[in-house]
Amino acid sequence: MNYNILVVDDEIDNLQLFIRTFRKKYNVLTANSGYEAIEILKNNQVDLIISDHKMPEMDGVEFLTRTLNICPDTIRILLTAYTDASSLINAINNAKIYRYVKKPWNINDLTTIVDRALDVHQLNNDNKELAVDLKELFSGTIAAITGALDAKDSFTFGRSKRVTYYALQTGKYLGLSDSELSELELAGLLHDIGMIGVPERVINKPGTLSSEEYDAIKQHVIHGVKILEEIKQFEAVINTIKFHHERYDGNGYPFGLKNDEIPVSAKIISVADTYDAMTSDRAYRKGLSHESAIAELKKGVGAQFDPDIVNAFVAIIDHTLIEVKKMEMVFE
Rank of each mutant, 00 (worst) to 15 (best):
M278L: 13
Y253S: 11
E200L: 05
R247F: 15
I317F: 07
S211L: 14
G175S: 05
H244D: 00
N94Q: 10
I196Q: 07
E11G: 10
L209N: 04
N94E: 15
R201C: 14
L130T: 06
T279H: 02
D109T: 10
A315T: 12
A85N: 07
D276R: 05
I294W: 07
E328V: 06
N69S: 14
G287S: 07
I316A: 03
I241P: 08
R23C: 11
L79R: 13
A151Q: 14
F63Q: 00
N27Q: 15
T141D: 14
A31Y: 00
E185K: 10
A312K: 06
E200K: 09
A167E: 09
R99G: 06
H121E: 09
T208N: 11
E129C: 04
Y98F: 09
L64I: 08
K226C: 12
N93A: 05
I196N: 02
L228C: 03
F155S: 15
M58I: 01
Q169D: 13
L110N: 05
M58G: 01
V163E: 02
G175T: 01
K54P: 03
K298N: 05
A293E: 06
W105T: 06
K135V: 08
K218T: 01
Y275G: 06
K24R: 12
Y253L: 06
K325V: 01
T274R: 12
L130K: 13
I113N: 10
L88A: 01
I262M: 02
G197N: 04
I19W: 00
P199C: 02
H319T: 15
D47R: 08
E229T: 13
L149T: 08
D84E: 12
T164Q: 10
H244M: 01
A148H: 13
M55I: 02
E230K: 11
G300D: 02
V310I: 04
V46D: 00
L41Q: 12
M329W: 14
L6F: 03
K298W: 10
P307M: 01
P199R: 02
P56M: 00
N69I: 06
V28M: 02
T111W: 01
E328S: 09
N239V: 05
G34L: 03
Y275D: 05
D126S: 10
K205L: 11
T30E: 05
A144E: 08
Q122M: 09
D115T: 11
E291C: 03
I316Q: 03
A295I: 01
G250D: 04
I75W: 05
H290W: 06
K326C: 11
N127Y: 15
T208W: 15
D10T: 02
L168Q: 07
H191G: 03
S265A: 15
D59P: 14
M329E: 15
S292C: 08
I268Q: 09
K232V: 14
L134Y: 06
M195P: 07
